[in-house]
Design a protein around this nucleic acid. Structure first.
Lengths: 209, 209
DNA sequence: AAGATGATCTTTACGCCGTCCAGATTCAGA
DNA sequence: TCTGAATCTGGACGGCGTAAAGATCATCTT
């Protein structure tokens, strides 16, 4: 109730409108889906005029970038946790992949925004695949810990990229209902995810291929 | 010039406006990208009033469905050709994967529409993964020809699904420029695609795993 | 303490969008 | 030939992203 319609005791100057707008956007994303996420609706949700966001973001795209950034931070943290909680390298790699896909499944609208914001740009944002605690580096480092040949950097990046492709492709496919019978047959979503990764054999490099 | 502005000798009743609208949409998709694909722009391109499309499509979504359908037909045909041109099972599987990714790379806007049209639906359209000459069945059949255990249908579908995830993930990633150095290092896009599939080991089932 | 400066927010407006409705035009069958 | 149905136009409605101009307020200078 504190955030839902923050236009109650509205002083003319909002305390931290930038923060409030991002929160409003994420709230709308959860409740109404990505298509309902208009700049005007976000301003409305934050209890502010349609033009107010322009004092904090260059345009709608920049607001979405900010939302996407928080999404990547969440994903990075969730994957780091999954890796930390696993013991063997195999479990770490499996855990990383599973937690990636589950994140996408748990936050489908946010996941969509994360990639849509990167489209028409040169690539994924740095905090997703360049910085030290990024999800991409997390996977690559785990390959190294698993005994990947560090001298062959091309092959290492290729393997990481391949794993990323597999996880992303799966993240997108799992939202379609046409494979539900496989989930049922395997006894649950996580089993389905693990089985698919098994088929993709993204752990080959860690097995000393 | 015949299609570009078909409003020259416009009889009041367009010959086949449905066909003309789909063509106009695909032309706009090529030239302006997916974001510029508004119903009004399509009507404009076809030389017709903004409301005319509603006599042939329920709404904008149905027009996009029709465009997507043609995209799937193109992809199915291209993959069938790739499979037919290869000799060994290995080559057929590789060729299927490569042709899928290359299609997405050659028609990025169309590829986007193909999946966007399926979102908020139950899954991919039947002609993409159910009918006999669909891309999905093409891959599954090739696994069978390669000696996959036909009695274990779950595993067969799982493998096909896994390959599909890998190809789709790759199709989406390849449009980002952040892996360009890998393409260069490997000496071309196709080599990059092949190397990534190699890492994903989607041929394991055909190798008798 | 007073006033100025600049940041923040509102109001208004423009053009584009998807969609609906009433009317005009044309085609097809009786 | 007449009639009804199919097709297309013109205009309208509300929602969108965004820009410009004015209102309000916080802060800094003197």
């Amino acid at each position: 109730m504190r955030e839902t319609a923050a236009a109650e005791n509205r002083p003319y100057h909002h305390g931290d409108l930038r923060r409030a707008l991002i929160d409003a956007a994420r709230r709308l994303l959860e409740s109404e889906g990505p298509t309902a996420l208009s700049l005007r609706a976000v301003a409305r949700e934050a209890g502010v005029s349609p033009a107010a966001p322009y004092h904090h973001f260059k345009d709608k795209g920049e607001l979405l970038d900010a939302v996407a950034h928080e999404g990547w931070d969440m994903l990075n943290a969730q994957m780091a946790k999954a890796k930390a909680e696993a013991t063997t390298i195999q479990d770490k790699l499996t855990g990383l992949g599973v937690s990636y896909v589950r994140f996408a499944q748990a936050n489908p609208a946010l996941y969509r925004v994360m990639y849509d914001a990167s489209r028409d740009k040169e690539g994924l944002p740095d905090h997703a695949h360049m910085e030290d605690d990024s999800a991409y580096c997390l996977v690559r480092d785990t390959f190294v810990e698993g005994g990947a040949d560090v001298t062959n950097e091309i092959d290492l990046e290729l393997a990481t990229n391949a794993a990323w492709c597999a996880a992303h492709g799966m993240a997108e496919m799992i939202s379609f209902k046409m494979f539900d019978h496989l989930k049922v047959a395997l006894g649950g979503e996580e089993a389905f995810i693990r089985a698919t990764f098994q088929h993709l054999g993204i752990f080959a490099i860690a097995r000393g291929r």
